[in-house]
């Protein structure tokens, strides 16, 4: 008889929402009939909550120690909800709706798609958990257990045409719900881009959850990009549109300050930011008492073996 010891990240079967409740979640909420219900049940009924996550050991380095959940969800750069790292956790949860959510795949594709995020997750075959390093261009890092699916599966659904060379990603635009967008602290909506071969790489991921829970609004609900070998700002949040295009799209930060932020934004300890060194990084929630903790930054954020081939012959100093 096989006795299976559940891993600490595993949700028990009993914790899974029964499909009937999930299907009728909005009616169910209504029948609860008190104001606090929507908030109290948020975790349970957020978009993509109905999908149990399973660990993918191929993408889990046992040497990596995940950052505490509280730090991951309260130390956020999401300028749509303020430029201070404490602001998104507060301002993204004041009535901004991330459920229901529609995603569109369009441009140079044979079968354009426009569907609900839950339908999409079902179509790509559910979600899995991967533990990735996360390195911000501001020289700090985390280790995050993401739940989601491989980006290549989503792109394959739309069947890109032969002349599609890049993927352009676009975030929602809702000036009423997003105070940063109302202020215009950046050019909105936020745009990011990947070369198609980067997007099709097995490490490129779409996250819909963290630590087995639906992704909180401040982390980019209900779905965001995760490209672990690139700086954090490439990981566009709350995506509404993927567009297959022939030319490299200009991403938002490149547009804001091209001398500081490029299109590739590959993590590279040898190429400094104009204002600071990228050779090492603060480890968020990494202990170390009053001094905190710092570690050397790895080439391609530790994914050199997997992704270096994508950039053969490319001058990484020029193409930062």
């Amino acid at each position: 008889m096989l006795i299976r010891t559940p891993k600490d990240w595993e949700l028990r079967e009993s914790a899974t929402t029964p499909e009937t409740i999930y299907q009728n979640r909005r009616t169910f909420l209504k029948t609860l009939g008190f104001a606090g219900a929507a908030f109290a049940a948020r975790d349970l009924f957020a978009a993509t909550a109905g999908f149990p996550t399973t660990n993918n050991p191929a993408f889990r380095d046992p040497a990596l120690k995940p950052t505490p959940y509280e730090a991951i969800t309260h130390y956020n750069n999401f300028y749509e909800f303020g430029t201070d790292k404490s602001e998104p956790a507060e301002l993204a949860n004041r009535g901004w709706k991330t459920d229901p959510w529609t995603v569109e795949v369009t441009g140079l594709v044979d079968t354009p798609l426009k569907l609900d995020v839950n339908e999409l997750v079902a179509k790509v075959g559910g979600i899995e958990q991967r533990v990735y390093r996360f390195r911000c261009v501001e020289a700090w890092s985390m280790v995050i257990p993401w739940d989601g699916f491989q980006l290549s599966k989503l792109i394959a659904l739309a069947s890109p045409k032969a002349d599609a060379k890049f993927v352009k990603f676009t975030t929602f635009l809702d000036r009423k719900s997003a105070p940063g967008q109302a202020d215009g602290n950046l050019d909105y909506p936020y745009i990011e881009g990947l070369r198609l071969d980067e997007a099709m790489h097995e490490l490129a991921f779409i996250a819909t959850g963290i630590y087995g829970k639906p992704i909180p609004n401040q982390n980019g609900a209900p779905l965001r990009l995760v490209v672990p070998w690139k700086y954090g700002f490439k990981n566009i949040k709350s995506i509404v549109k993927l567009e297959l295009v022939a030319k490299a799209p200009r991403n938002t930060w490149q547009q804001m300050a091209a001398s500081e932020y490029g299109f590739y934004a590959n993590v590279n300890p040898l190429v400094d930011h104009p204002r600071w060194s990228q050779a090492s990084e603060r480890v968020i929630g990494g202990g170390g008492g009053v001094f905190g903790s710092r570690q050397r930054t790895l080439m391609f954020n530790g994914y050199e073996k997997q992704v270096a081939a994508l950039y053969k012959g490319l001058d990484l100093e020029k193409n930062y």
């Binding site: 969800t73 130390y75 404490s86 968020i284 009053v290 001094f291």
Partner: peptide, 11 residues
């Protein structure tokens, strides 16, 4: 105990 500050108090 501001969680955003506690993520990296020295910063």
């Amino acid at each position: 105990h501001n969680q955003s500050v506690l993520a990296d108090p020295l910063k």
